[in-house]
Design a protein around this nucleic acid. Structure first.
Lengths: 240, 240
DNA sequence: CACTGCAATACATGCCATGTCTGGTGATCG
DNA sequence: CGATCACCAGACATGGCATGTATTGCAGTG
């Protein structure tokens, strides 16, 4: 185990035990290095690794601080991880299966908690999708926002971040492109409407069923296109 | 955005686009630094950050390689993230809620796929728990193995890693200590037996119900003890 | 002659020390 | 009250030495 790894462990321990509470400031690099018993260089490596993991935040010219350690921050890196395992069809289908398991129950929970304002937001994205018929970019954006709004209504930040992470921006974009090409956008839109109607009546079971139908159809579509079409187009989507 | 961050992005892009497939070797540090247009120090920081995220693997004296990029590897860091947000009771309850949503459906799925051999393994851990009545350490270990075996029967690696991650080793240990103190170990054991019996008959609905009951009871226990007892004992559990 | 064992070597990362540069903050002065 | 400047933080570069690993080549042996 390298000294850098030990340093990372030490800092993590300090945070875990509460010696470094969220928002607190770390010593300057030279002092930190001295405390950890290593050179500035390795201290920087450790800090950088934890900063990438959203555990620390370095403000240039000011200092290094512990982040808020909110679940939404810590679990955020999950999305980045998902982006890397594209191309492995097995892994993609596994993730879709997780989404098929989790999103319906999350939607059911949302049905029991959603407020009128949140319902209105969901409706807004639904209508935006309806109007953006052939604009893949817009469709994708409002689709993502639709699901985000639904899951967000559970009030569970961790749940939201997890689901957002496993959904995967790039994957979703690819699916929508394919759906439009297949003229299947209409059916997908209808599925969203079903989810919204179920949420409107606060019917948990119905919401769950509608969500399952939707995710399941998407999963089915993905499975077929992973089998038949080209191995996998990668890097053809630009970032936001 | 710092040069190190750019370097991390560049390497990630190379991996994402397939220019650096899993298992491939990166150039030596000096060459890599030259290619990225920065000093060896910053190249090391970038590599270290990606190594911590299990995207790269550095073998001293040999070279730096891209890992297998298996979901189980990439999502592994999630467990480490969860350990850090202890003490924030809201975040803990949110995570328990996710587990309450996900584990029952995962168990139901497992019921439809579990093999006789896997069933035997589950049974083994159940009996081990029964015999280890008052040994918190043993109870905890076999409890974790029990759930791991169940979810593992789904054949979905990503699902397994996610659930293991959000369960949290340290949290589970704390709960078991409390359960034994409350003389509630017997009831918890009975819940595990119910899950096993349901799995034995390959009854998905029953398995789901049994798992929900179990996780829900655990969640309830945690909620009460987060409210009443001391703020939170931290750092009182040794690592494995 | 082919093969095995080992030692020397080349090359990889690990780690350190020290320097300059640049941005941010806060005090100071008009 | 606002502009300015000094200081302190991290950002980045360079060069060197330490140490671990894989490979190469040679010796000895079947």
């Amino acid at each position: 185990m390298s000294l850098t790894d030990k340093a990372i462990e030490q800092i993590r321990e300090l945070i875990r035990t509460g010696a470094l509470p969220p928002g607190s400031k770390l010593p300057p690099e030279p002092d930190l290095a001295a405390q950890l018993g290593l050179s500035r260089n390795l201290a920087r490596e450790a800090v950088k690794a934890l900063a990438v993991a959203r555990v620390l935040e370095v403000r240039r010219g000011d200092g290094t601080y512990v982040t808020s350690l909110q679940p939404s921050l810590l679990l955020e890196g999950l999305g980045g991880a998902v982006e890397l395992l594209q191309g492995d069809s097995v892994a993609l289908q596994d993730l879709m299966e997780v989404r098929r398991l989790l999103e319906p129950v999350a939607t059911a929970l949302a049905a029991t908690r959603i407020s009128d304002a949140q319902l209105a937001e969901v409706k807004g994205h639904l209508e935006a999708m309806r109007e953006a018929r052939d604009d893949v970019e817009q469709l994708n954006a409002h689709d993502a926002a639709f699901h985000r709004a639904v899951v967000s209504a559970t009030g569970n930040e961790s749940l939201l971040t997890l689901l957002e992470g496993i959904s995967g921006r790039t994957l979703r974009a690819r699916i929508w492109r394919g759906l439009v090409d297949d003229k299947a956008a209409g059916r997908t839109l209808a599925e969203h409407e079903a989810i919204f109607r179920a949420l409107s009546t606060r019917d948990a079971a119905l919401s769950q069923a509608a969500a399952l139908l939707h995710v399941s159809n998407t999963e089915q579509w993905l499975r077929e296109h992973l089998r038949s079409s080209e191995p996998l187009p990668v890097g053809t989507t630009e970032r936001n």
